[in-house]
Simulated scan of single mutants.
Amino acid sequence: MQDKFFLKKRLKSSIILFVVLLVTYGAIIMTEFSLIKGLASIPKAFEWGVTNFFPTTKSLERLPNILNKLFETILVSIGATTVAAIFALAFAIMGSATTRVNSFLSGMARGFATLFRNIDIAVWSMILLFTFGQSALTGFFALFFVSFGFLTRAFIEVIDEASGSSVEALQATGAPYLTTIFQSVIPASLPMMLSWVLFVAETNIRSATLIGILTGTGIGFAFDLYYKSMNYNAASLVVIVIVLTILLIEYISNYVRRVIL
């Protein structure tokens, strides 16, 4: 009986492996990919990068404009994260098994979280383009929707893990619902919630760079504009500024996490 089980499991694994290899082969045929040509093109690609993709004195003149676009991107990202965190906290309290008011509201909160979290941010941007066009508002709502879904799910898990026993203790004493929330749930969950908010803010700043190409705003649009106009020196300056900003934000975020956790 056990041999049949392992044989059946091995057969399923073999079929899955065969399907994966078949799909991979089909992708190679469709894209006309050649490993030999790819490896042979590396030296030329490196040579092109060295000769074209570096800032010059002329491209440095565009630095103030690039920094303004970067500042816009950071503001939109942090704004979307902050607003999403506020809404996510309210929905997480409704959705948590520890603090839910009733099953209907809990299911609704979890459903919204699943919907907004599982639709990719690029898809949200394309959907919102039909309504708001190429504007900072499109990027803001795209970041907000994804952040809201992710943070709601994360906050629900944090509340369930961090405040279960303390909530039961307050409820046993007959404490009102709002007292339980503000004196037990939020204080116990706040450090981990802040850590998740910082993580989402980091992610949003990276995502906003790509979203800017679609929405025509921020640092992403600056890169797209310089790259398509073949101003590779200015485009490389944008990339350097983005990398340095991400490293700085990650350093600040890690420092804040060490302080609050």
Rank of each mutant, 00 (worst) to 15 (best):
S41T: 07
F182Y: 14
E202F: 07
F221S: 13
P55Y: 04
F130A: 14
T209M: 11
S41F: 03
T209K: 05
K12L: 14
E157P: 01
A201G: 13
P43K: 08
I16T: 08
A136I: 13
W196V: 00
V76M: 14
S14Y: 08
A92F: 05
I213V: 14
V50S: 04
F87V: 13
A122L: 15
T24C: 12
L105D: 05
A154G: 00
T81N: 08
Q171F: 01
L67Q: 10
F112S: 07
Q183L: 11
V101S: 11
I127K: 05
V146E: 07
S59Q: 11
S41Y: 04
I181A: 04
F140W: 11
V239E: 01
F155N: 09
F18N: 00
S165C: 00
T203D: 13
T217D: 06
G216I: 06
G95W: 11
A85G: 10
E32V: 01
V185R: 05
L75W: 08
G26W: 09
A234R: 02
R10G: 15
I36T: 13
I260K: 04
G49L: 14
P43Q: 09
G164R: 14
A109G: 06
T209I: 07
Q2N: 14
I249E: 06
D120A: 13
V146F: 07
W48S: 10
S229M: 12
R258F: 08
R258W: 07
F150N: 12
V158M: 10
S34P: 04
F54L: 10
I219E: 09
K9I: 05
V185W: 08
A109S: 15
M230G: 00
I159D: 10
S103D: 14
T73Y: 06
L63N: 03
V238A: 05
L194Y: 03
L247V: 11
Y226K: 02
M192E: 13
A172K: 02
K9S: 12
G164P: 00
W196P: 00
S59C: 12
E61P: 00
M192I: 09
A172H: 03
I36C: 00
A201H: 06
F87N: 01
N204M: 10
M1C: 04
Y227H: 10
I28E: 10
S103R: 11
S253Y: 08
L21D: 04
M192Y: 08
T24M: 15
A154W: 01
A142G: 14
A92K: 04
F199M: 11
T24D: 03
K4N: 13
T24P: 00
S14A: 14
F46Q: 06
K69C: 09
N231K: 12
V76K: 04
G107S: 13
N204C: 05
S135G: 02
A90V: 15
T245N: 08
M230N: 10
P43A: 11
I121P: 00
T98L: 06
S195C: 09
I78K: 02
A188H: 12
P176A: 09
G95R: 05
I252S: 11
M230C: 01
I119L: 15
A201W: 07
P64S: 11
A234K: 02
L248Q: 02
A136K: 10
A222L: 06
A154C: 06
S253F: 07
V185L: 07
S184L: 02
Q183A: 09
F130N: 03
G174H: 10
L170I: 02
G79P: 04
